[in-house]
Structure formats: C-alpha cells, structure tokens
C-alpha cells in the first residue's frame, strides 16, 4: 500500500512557493461566468477573499480543492497542480464549506477523529489531534454531544475543527462568520487570526463583509463578478494619510478654538467627531506640524490629550472602486 510522503512543513516553508497561484483561471457554468480569467497569488498568513454574493468566492475554493473543474486556466496549491495532483493537495489542505456539513447524530469529538483518519492519521494520533483542535476552537464538554443539538456558533467551531484535524498547510475557510452574532463573530475572527499567525497555517478566508476581514488579514483579494478587482497587502490600506488627529481636553468649544487657530496658522483643519483633523502642510512648508500643534495648544491654554496619525480604512478605499458591489457592513 502506498504511503503518501509525510507533509514536510519545513520544506514547504523553505521552498517559498506561494500557498495559491492561479493563471487565467476561468469557470463558465454556461449561464454564468463565475470566474473570469483570474490571476491571483496568495502567500502565508491570512488572506481575505472578499466579494458580494455571487462574486465567485466559493467557486474559486472548490476549483482549488479539485471539487470543480475549471473551464480554462491553471492553478497551483502549495506548489501542486490542481489538474494532476488533486490528492496531494487535498492531503495538505483543510476545507470549511459555507454550507452545513455535519452529521447530526455524531458527536464533534467522534467526527473530528474520523475526519483526521480520512486524511490518513492513525487512530491514536487522530484522537490526540481531535482533542487538541477542539480545545483550540473552544468546544468544551459539548464535544461529546451529538452535533444536531448545537447552536450555529458551535457548529461553525466544529466545522473549523475538522478543517484543522490533520494539521494542514493551508485552510480554505468559506464564510466562517456566516450566521454568527457579533460576539461569536469576533471570536471566530480571532481564531482565524491565530490560525494564520500563531499556528503557522496559511489561511484563505472569504466574506462578503469587507470590514470584518480588515482586522485579521495580511492581504485582501477583492472579487467582483468573477474578476479580480484588487489584491493588496492590508498594510497598504492602513498607510497613513499624512493627516493628524488631535484631541484636547474639553468639548466642542475647545476643539474648535484649536481648529481655527491651526487653520489661521496655515494648516487646513476640520472638526471630526471630538477631534481636529489637521492636514499636512503644503509642499515646501518646512514647519514641524507636531511642534506647531503643541505650541498652539499651549498658547491657547488647552490641555493636549493626544496627537495620532490618521489611517485609511479598507472600506474607504474600496467604496468608490467597488461601487456598491461589496457591502461595507
């Protein structure tokens, strides 16, 4: 009986191959062009795959797993070709589908053990792994109860646990926050972040909510109607805009006092919430903005609370590009 090569993480990591790479990937369902000549590369860490309903997110994931055949184009997962090395890919990848996939009459514990064995782990090792991952996803005593009685949050955790059962190199998480209340959603996103950063497993996570992936993703890929709209590092979005946000003690009166003084000094300033947004000085103006703000506040007798740089939010950047294609929350 053939034994698959043990999954050599060190080699995978050293080789520097991207977790996912696609070239001209196309899926035509006949009635719908779900993916339109897609070129993307996904590396380590957490990558958010964002798009409205029907953008092609699930189609992409299923093609990467070999569950669907592409109409055209090619793709590699962890350096393995989807057309010829499906079994190798599926041995190294974990999949959390968007739909229900749990048998109701089996306990999470038994199920995760079974799924680890379905990736080739021996029984004893599978039991150990199941206990580990169920602890990581936060399923406690309920792991011994049939999953039919689980809440949506518990079901999502069990689905995630089976995706991690065999210690994959990459997990494909299709809408893991679907149907969760805000608190469970935060828990799930924190888990996703830990998987990508602390567990060292590359993550591709989909959502149609741009805002929620911003916090946990290193990269964001935006799909719109099967086409790549944008792929960037999340840090690109978080680059400072040059604007400074200044907060002083007191209320609107104090805020506006400072704002007007700075404006008169030649720094365009606007009130924003309870702070003053101070735009950078014009090119050629060599004055130090920080010093100016501090001196102005002292002159006016205002208590300075903080000065901090203003960041772009992904949503602000995409709002125009996507033009309604992605729901920003």
């Amino acid at each position: 009986m053939a034994t698959l090569h043990p999954v050599d993480r060190a080699a995978d990591r050293r080789s520097g191959v991207p977790a996912i790479a696609t070239q001209g990937l196309t899926k035509d369902y006949g009635s719908v062009l779900a993916l339109d000549s897609l070129d993307v590369t996904v590396g380590t860490g957490v990558t958010g795959l964002v798009g409205a309903n029907g953008a092609g997110k699930s189609t992409l994931i299923k093609i990467l797993l070999g569950l669907l055949d592409p109409t055209a184009g090619s793709a590699q997962v962890l350096g393995h070709d989807i057309a010829t090395e499906g079994a190798e890919i599926r041995a190294r990848v974990g999949y959390m589908p968007e739909h229900e996939c749990l048998p109701p009459d089996v306990s999470a514990s038994d199920f995760v053990v079974h799924m680890a064995q379905m990736s080739g782990l021996p029984h004893a090792a599978a039991r150990e792994r199941a206990a580990d991952v169920l602890r990581h996803v936060g399923l406690a005593e309920e792991r011994y109860r049939p999953m039919g009685g689980y809440s949506t949050g518990m079901k999502q955790r069990a689905k995630l646990a089976q995706a991690l059962a065999h210690d994959p190199r990459l997990v494909l998480l299709d809408e893991p926050t679907n149907g969760l209340d805000p608190a469970s959603r935060d828990d799930m996103l924190e888990l996703v972040r830990r998987i990508g950063h602390d567990f060292g497993i590359a993550v591709l996570v989909t959502s149609h909510l741009l805002g929620e992936l911003e916090r946990v993703s290193d990269h964001v890929v935006v799909l719109d109607g099967g086409r790549l709209l944008r792929a960037s590092a999340t840090t690109d979005f978080l680059d400072t805009t040059g604007t400074l946000l200044v907060e002083v003690l007191g209320g609107a009166t104090e805020r506006d006092l400072l704002g007007r003084a700075l404006h008169d000094a030649g720094f365009p300033s606007r009130p924003r919430g309870n702070v003053v947004a101070v735009e950078p000085p014009a090119p050629g103006d060599t004055r130090n903005v920080h010093d100016m703000i501090r001196d102005t506040a002292v002159d006016l007798g205002l208590g300075l609370v903080r000065i901090q740089p203003d960041h772009h939010r992904i949503e602000d950047i995409f709002r125009e590009e996507v033009a309604g294609a992605v729901q920003p929350h």
Binding site: T3, L4, A87, Q117, G120, L121, P122, H166
Partner: peptide
C-alpha cells in the same frame, strides 16, 4: 505518519 489511500 500519514497513511495512504489504502489505509484511509
């Protein structure tokens, strides 16, 4: 170790 298709 990870078993092959036969073991699975």
């Amino acid at each position: 170790p990870r078993g092959g298709h036969g073991a699975i």
